[in-house]
């Protein structure tokens, strides 16, 4: 598979799952063990390991083993890079659409035709 933008495709795929987002949210508060995360998500350890594998592959977590306990720690850098990718495109298109609306605003006489400011649709 073609690597895109330093693995942002893996980050996007990792975040496209509610359980994995929940795990990242929990790890934002501090490191946690696999079993702690599994309990919080309400899933078994095998399923948790699958999710952890995807998060590790995306560079979103780092894991250390002490004795029999594996502890996972969040790496926020991929989130920032992904956020930057989205923010850059959002800024670009907002500027473009402002220009598009502005090109026609001058054509109209009269009041009350302000182009509506757009946001990101969810």
């Amino acid at each position: 598979m073609v690597k895109y933008f330093d693995g942002l495709d893996a980050v996007a795929a990792a975040l496209a799952h509610p359980g994995r987002r929940q795990a990242i949210g929990l790890l934002g508060a501090g490191p946690a063990s696999s079993s702690h995360l599994a309990r919080a998500l309400g899933i078994g350890l095998p399923a948790m390991h699958k999710h952890l594998g995807l998060l590790t592959g995306a560079g979103l977590i780092e894991s250390t083993k002490v004795g029999r306990v594996v502890t996972h720690r969040l790496r926020p850098e991929p989130l920032r890079r992904y956020g930057s990718w989205l923010a850059e495109r959002s800024a670009f298109w907002n500027a473009q659409l402002d220009a598009l609306a502005g090109a026609f605003a001058g054509d109209r006489k009269g009041v009350g035709d302000d182009p509506e400011k757009a946001g990101v649709l969810e």
């Binding site: 659409l97 402002d98 598009l100 609306a101 035709d113 509506e116």
Partner: peptide, 17 residues
């Protein structure tokens, strides 16, 4: 996410836009 979505209301008819 996979996609970014934005919208704008442009003061011109569809054909012109």
């Amino acid at each position: 996410m996979n996609a970014l979505e934005l919208s704008r209301l442009v003061p011109a008819p569809v054909q012109q836009v």
